[in-house]
Design a protein around this nucleic acid. Structure first.
Length: 107
DNA sequence: ACTTTGACTTCGG
DNA sequence: TCCGAAGCCAAAG
């Protein structure tokens, strides 16, 4: 994929896509994969977010289908805390996707 | 070079 | 809701 005159690895494109999710909103791994131009590669979105923390990428805004937090253990609790601090609402163990799901706009 | 693992999703049963 | 299978692919062993 061409972008600004240079070729980006698709992991980088995925990270740029995650950067487009505003505070208080979330998206699923599948949403990000699709918006980045790689439908079906939800699994690779998780890989692309492994070093997200260091790069200042809002990794916490990416959730599993239905608003479920898939990050295991304390990391998952941390993710929920970060999202609630941003104003994301939770219903039971799921984020309220009806209200907080980000709608990606085409470029 | 091959196999397994993993912050996935979708479809059936 | 839960479980398995298929499709997905970088990284680790």
């Amino acid at each position: 994929m061409r972008n600004g005159g240079s070729w980006l690895g698709y992991f980088e494109e995925i990270q740029r896509t995650v950067l487009r999710i505003p505070r208080g909103r979330v998206a699923t791994y599948g949403d990000v994969a699709r918006a980045a131009g790689y439908p079906g590669r939800a699994r690779q979105v998780a890989w692309a977010l492994r070093n997200a923390e260091l790069r200042g990428i809002p990794w916490q805004r990416v959730l599993g289908q239905g608003g479920r937090i898939l990050l295991p253990g304390s990391a998952g609790l941390h993710q929920r805390a970060l999202l609630e601090r941003e104003g994301v609402l939770f219903v039971g163990s799921r984020a309220d996707m009806q209200r907080c799901r980000h709608r990606f706009r085409r470029i």
